[in-house]
Amino acid sequence: MAERILHMNHPATDYFLIEQILQGDKKKFEILYKRYSRMIHLVCLRYAKTSSEAEDFLQDSFVSIFKGLDKYDLDKGNFSTWSKKVAVNVCLQHLRKKSFSFYLGNLTEIVSPQSNDPTPLDNLSLQELTKKIQTLPTGYRAVFNMFIIDGFSHKEIAVKLGITESSSRSQLTKAKKYLRGQLSHQNYKVTYG
């Protein structure tokens, strides 16, 4: 317990910084920003379609983090986990505003023939992988990010995106298929009905 208190009071800890920010020292927020901007930027890049859009998401995420600092509870997890959740929520809000569809059913077929030797996704670098994810249609991208990377269950995704659990599963399957197809350098054709 004493060790934890000592750790919390260390000037470098997030907790100490947050305390100071809440007491009115707003300049300390820049330290938090510098500490976590890359991590949050990566979250935003995954959800956004372009880099400039990701920076908009990043800006709003940090504004939301700042405004919600008083709600942050150290006992419920470390600051990086909490701030990442805030960023994901901000990204989803942005996607909803764009009125893109999150809904996927059985009517859409993406023709994406598998090549004989596709490059496994996990062999790609972080940057390459992020760029591949950005090519996903918005609905696929949201579900893929939420389930594969951010650890949401299909039930949670369904609630957050206002879709059914089966839609979420189907969307994820199609997103994976789409990504594999991308790696096989095949073209995609969208068919209706």
Binding site: S37, R38, M39, H41, L42, L45, R46, E55, L58, S80, P120, L121, D122, L126, Q127, L129, I148, I149, G151, K176, L179, R180
Partner: peptide, 25 residues
């Protein structure tokens, strides 16, 4: 076959110090 668990690890690795491309403008 793709291992999506590895993708999870890759994105949730907090050591992003060398990823200069992630530096915002």
């Amino acid at each position: 076959m793709d291992n999506f668990d590895n993708i999870f690890d890759k994105f949730n690795d907090e050591a992003l110090g060398e990823e200069q491309w992630l530096e915002p403008t």
